[in-house]
Structures are given as C-alpha cells and as structure tokens.
C-alpha cells in the first residue's frame, strides 16, 4: 500500500511538477502574487521531496519543516498566507491528475492513489494551519516584549532628577518591569529624586497601589526619594476607600508641583531671566 504511493510519487515526479507549473501560471491567487513568482518551481520541488521523504518514513516531519519555514517567513514579513495554501492544493491536484492519467486502465489503483493523496493533502493542510498559528503567536510574543520596553521609559530630567511617566494599565508583569527599569535607571544616573507620573494609568486598584508602594520602597532603599505625581481625584478616593497607607510617600497633584518640590530638594531655583514670555531665540534654558 505505502510502496504503491511512494513508487508513483517517485516515478511521476516530472509529470507532477510540470502540471504544477502549468496550473499555477493560470491560477487566480498565485499569479498576481509576487512572493513566489521567481522561485515557484523550487518551492514545488521542495515540497515534493519533503513529501516523498515523509511517505517513505511514514511521518510528517520533513513536510512540517518546509511548510513551517514557508509560513513563518510569510507571517514575519506580513505577507498573505493564501498562496502557500494554494501551492499545496495545486501540488496535490497535479498529483491526482497525474495518477488518473498514469493508471487510466486500472481505475481501482488510480482511486487508491487518489485516496492516499487526499490523505496527505489533509495532513499537510493541518500542518499549515498549525504552523501559521504558531508563527503568529511568536510574532505577538515578540511585540509584547517590544511594547514592554517601550512603555516604561526612565527619563533623566536634570542632574539627579528622573521622571518615570506611567501610561496604561499596570499588571504584575509590567510592575516588575517598571521596578527593574527604574532601579537600574537610578543606579545608572546616580539620581536621588524620582518623579513617578501616574496620570496616564486609567485604573488604580489595590494591586497597582501595592506595586507602586513596593517600587517606592525599593527606590528608597537605594537612596532615592520618590514623588508620586499626577494623582487624580478618583485615585485619591480609591486609596482612601481601600484604606491603603500612603503615609510615608510624598505625593503631589501634578507634575509641575512635583518638579517644584524636587528642584527645592536639590537647591535649584527656577526663575525667568529678563522679562516677558517665551523667546525662541534664547531657547528654554532655566
């Protein structure tokens, strides 16, 4: 049984590949697509030989590899995955047609081979679906990492003063990232004052407050003082309602107020040189 399909597959190589190229040239999906125009023949041959190996060893390992790398490439570069599906369909269709022509007199044998081909078509399609999903999951995971990096910047504002603007919902994972980033930022910049701006955090619950307190405590162990700024009325209400003790933490309503306090701690004085409003020619030095 298995030898039959392997034998047919090997013998009819040229017919199958030839038919594939003929079919794909007229195909409505493959023809307008740029991605496999140059190396279409190669892709068919790859897939053909992978399937041959798998038919001999009765696994789907090699096909999985080829289909996997095709779909990973397509997903990574944001291309359509439909052509891959089409390539597999065309290969199987060509094989079926080749079988029907080859065993024209032996109808039984032809349908047996066709059945095998159908089986392999189904298996390959399942592999394709799985590998597309896996490739997409990889991309999403990577994007998540990038997003985490992007979302917790530590900005050196003045000598010894850092600003940490928090934007978006804070979960445990992000809170850890924030703490790591901040502590490393403090050591790197040797900063002793940190302004944590939470005006961009939409929901503040016990968890978030807990993380905030932990971050402030860790920073103070390093020797940096934190000022939490951007506290909105809802946040204040939540804190009071939940009975969270913010006693030892310095808080201010706005970044401006926090900055003024930080400047005072550092013995800076903020004053306008000369009169009038902003002047483009002198810049915004303070």
């Amino acid at each position: 049984m298995e030898q039959e399909i392997v034998g047919f597959w090997t013998d009819s190589r040229n017919e199958i590949i030839g038919k594939c190229i003929e079919l794909s040239a007229k195909d409505a999906i493959l023809e307008p697509d740029e991605s496999y125009r140059q190396n279409r023949e190669q892709v068919f041959e790859h897939l053909w030989s992978a399937l041959l190996q798998d038919m001999q060893s009765d696994t789907m390992a090699k096909t999985g590899e080829v289909v996997g790398s095709l779909s990973r490439e397509a997903v990574r570069y944001g291309r359509n995955v439909e052509p891959i599906q089409r390539i597999i369909e065309i290969l199987m269709k060509s094989a079926e047609e080749a079988a029907r022509t080859k065993y024209r007199e032996d109808a039984n044998r032809a349908s047996r081979i066709a059945g095998h081909i159908k089986e392999y078509l189904d298996k390959t399609m399942i592999i394709l679906t799985k590998s597309i999903i896996r490739a997409q999951a990889e991309v999403i995971e990577k994007q998540k990492e990038y997003l985490l990096e992007l979302s917790t910047p530590v900005i050196p504002l003045l000598d010894g003063i850092l600003v940490l603007p928090l934007i978006g919902t804070i979960d445990t994972r992000r809170a850890k990232q924030i703490m790591d980033n901040l502590l490393n930022g403090i050591v790197e910049a040797q900063a002793d004052t940190v302004l944590i701006d939470i005006s961009g955090v939409p929901i503040v619950d016990t968890q978030v407050a807990h993380h905030l307190i932990k971050t402030v405590q860790a920073a103070s162990l390093l020797g940096a003082r934190c000022i939490i700024v951007g506290i909105r009325p809802e946040f204040a209400q939540t804190i009071v309602k939940l009975g969270i003790d913010f006693g030892s933490i310095v808080t201010k309503n706005s970044l401006q107020a926090g900055l003024k306090l930080a400047l005072k701690w550092h013995n800076y004085e903020l004053r306008r040189v000369g009169g009038g409003g902003p002047d483009a020619s002198t810049g915004a030095d303070s």
Partner: peptide
C-alpha cells in the same frame, strides 16, 4: 550603594529598613 537586586529582594520579602537612611553611593 545598595544594588537593585538587593532592594527588590528586600521589598519582595516584605522587609523594609524602616528608619534607616540610605544613599546611592
């Protein structure tokens, strides 16, 4: 000169050096 790793450990263990003065270096 406490390192971030140590600070995180202390906070995670719930030990805060209440009342102890700290400095960066």
């Amino acid at each position: 000169g406490m390192s971030p790793a140590v600070a995180i450990t202390l906070v995670e263990m719930g030990l805060n050096l209440e009342g102890v003065d700290t400095a960066l270096n």
